[in-house]
Amino acid sequence: MPFPSPYDTWFADAEFDASYGHTLATLREIAPIAAPDGFAERWQSWREQATAVDAAPTVLSTETAHGRRVSVVEHAGVDGTRLRAWVVEPLSAPARVGVIHSHGYGGRDAVDLARVPDDAAAIFPVARGLPTLNAGVGAPEPQAEHVLAGIETPDSYVLGLCARDLWLAADALTTLVGPLPLYYVGESFGGGIGALALPWDDRYVGATLIVPSFGQYDERLAVHCVGSGETVRDHVAAHPEAREVLRWFDASTALGFARIPVRVEAALWDPYVPPPGQFGVANAARILELAVLPAGHAEYPGAEQVTAEAIRDSRAHLARALNAAS
């Protein structure tokens, strides 16, 4: 099938059509996966268990950079595993909002303040097992091993642990800087993990999810990709019982339980996170601001301008969400 214009020019050497034959109209029709019985109760139980864990953050180092105070901290995950993160604070005045800023499946090697307002404190958690701060800690580092770690049961599956760790990362931030309304930013892996965690934490006023992963597993398992989804797809083909575990970790299912305004930046072409999964997440949001990206996980003409506009609009979304909650 020929790629839709202009993708035949932009991605002429691509292995396959990463629009998967969809248009914006067909993507907007993709329904989120309905929750299995007990979905909310299970996540609420995990949230309650997490409140009994002391994040116990400790500051390992501090410097002044980018006009902010930047610290490397260590805090507990949901099972007590000690995880490292960066915490950023304004220098001149107390913060008005706290930003929990997650990352893609490659991990993180530095803070990225593009979507963090000057008057915000932020924590940049690094998921268990992932580089640089937590490589091999609490989960295997290689992506193909990481995405399958603990998939035998819902309680042990790594994606659930990573989502639940976000509650402890937020605890760590508020312990260090004081109680603040929270806003979430997550891209790809971080977008999907955030969608799983957000509905069960009432401290959040809003979120931006950028090309979110782990959404709409019926669509995700049906198509080839070059990201972590392909590893999961191969595993489920060999172990069909794993599909039942994945039902508890569908970002499209979880986001339907969130009552905060959510901005989703979803791509029409993406070989790593298939667009049907991304739009399954977007279509689940009760209060949605949708930004349609030409492509995700790819370079293309005009990408810098698209990214700059997305960052601007995401900051505006945060400001509106914060004002509405005040």
Rank of each mutant, 00 (worst) to 15 (best):
M1Q: 04
F3V: 00
D8G: 10
A12D: 11
D13N: 11
D37K: 13
A40F: 01
V53N: 05
D54A: 15
A56G: 07
T58D: 12
S61K: 06
S61P: 03
S61Q: 11
E63F: 03
A65C: 00
S92M: 03
A93W: 02
A95P: 07
V97C: 15
I100W: 04
Y105E: 10
Y105D: 13
D118W: 00
R128E: 11
R128M: 07
L130R: 15
A139G: 03
A144L: 08
V147K: 02
V158I: 15
R164H: 02
D165L: 00
L166H: 03
L168G: 07
A170H: 04
L180H: 06
P181R: 09
V185L: 15
V185N: 13
F189N: 08
G191E: 03
G192L: 08
G194W: 05
L198M: 07
W200I: 06
D201R: 13
L209S: 02
I210M: 10
P212V: 12
D218R: 12
D218S: 12
D218M: 00
A222T: 07
H224I: 00
T231K: 03
D234R: 14
E241H: 12
R263Q: 15
V264P: 14
A267L: 08
P274A: 04
P275N: 11
L290F: 07
A291H: 13
V292H: 01
L293D: 01
P301T: 09
T307L: 13
E309C: 03
I311G: 02
N323H: 14
A324C: 11
